Simulated assay, not measured.
Amino acid sequence: MNNHEIDYVIHGNDMQFVEVELDPKETVIAEAGSLMMMEDSIEMETIFGDGSSQSGGFMGKIMGAGKRLLTGESLFMTAFTNDGGSKKKVSFASPYPGSIIPLDLSELGGKVICQKDAFLCAAKGVSVGVAFQKKLGTGFFGGEGFIMQKLEGDGMAFVHAGGTLHKVELQQGETLRVDTGCLVALTKDVEYDIQFVKGIKTALFGGEGLFFATLKGPGTVWVQSLPFSRLASRVFSSMPHNGGNEGEGSVLRRTFDMLGGD
């Protein structure tokens, strides 16, 4: 294997975290801010890019790190290495309520495409790159944008998403239509496209958006029940907009005032 071999345990149900066990000199890479806790003898180091062995030379590292900017991520990642003489543990948590998916890339064809903010952590050697959508329609109207993340290698990687995660196995030629925001990840053989919702009334008044993702097998797809964008939209719509509480009490007060009450 080119990647470090790591053991792991996922804890929790609705607000999960992953506990990674490192042998001496083993390393796991993670997005900045995802650390939950770690035992002694584990050393942290900020690295340029993902630290994968696929990046050749200084310019290779520059290009690999630069691509991360296109996905809205930082140029840097954090490497956690066990410098002790025995096994040690380090844990990483999701940034919002949801689930964590363990992906053994050696069993998934060495490559998985995921939404740009789904990556949580991985064994050192896993390449975190950029996947460009081939069709302009997919790029401009897909819920995940023109650019998605690409995880390559033969080690373990972990991605997270909101709500409950559901795994769908698509057979040859089988098609699945998904809300664009609910798509989390897919294996490399799955064909991914964007389709316009038919019917002007459905598109404008259906409340489900103008586009959905069409996924064609064979391959594996992971879907989330509660995209963070949907959660954030509901929270924002419930926030007071005039500096006061917009709850039931305020509604009744405004009604009373309109009727001439004191």
Rank of each mutant, 00 (worst) to 15 (best):
S86Y: 14
E169V: 12
N2K: 01
G109C: 10
C114S: 03
E144L: 13
I42K: 06
F146D: 05
F17W: 15
S94W: 07
I47E: 03
L186Q: 12
P24W: 06
I100H: 08
D104L: 01
T71Q: 11
Q171V: 08
D7T: 11
K216N: 05
L259W: 09
E31W: 06
T71R: 02
V128L: 10
D83S: 14
E26R: 10
G110R: 10
E107A: 07
T164G: 02
I10S: 00
F119G: 05
G51I: 04
G249K: 13
H11P: 02
I101Q: 12
M44C: 08
E144I: 03
S99Q: 13
N242H: 15
M44N: 03
Q133V: 06
A123Q: 02
T180V: 00
R253M: 07
S238Q: 13
E174L: 03
H4R: 07
Y8E: 12
I113P: 13
M44D: 11
R230Q: 15
G109D: 11
S237W: 09
T46M: 07
K135W: 13
K116Q: 13
F58D: 03
M1V: 01
I47M: 03
H160D: 10
L186G: 11
F236N: 14
D193F: 07
T202C: 01
L215S: 03
L259P: 08
D104F: 00
L231N: 09
S55P: 05
S41Y: 14
C121A: 11
R254T: 04
A232W: 11
T71F: 09
R253D: 11
V130F: 04
E246P: 00
D257V: 03
L136Y: 08
G219E: 02
D193G: 13
W222E: 02
L151K: 00
T71M: 13
G209R: 12
N245W: 09
M38E: 08
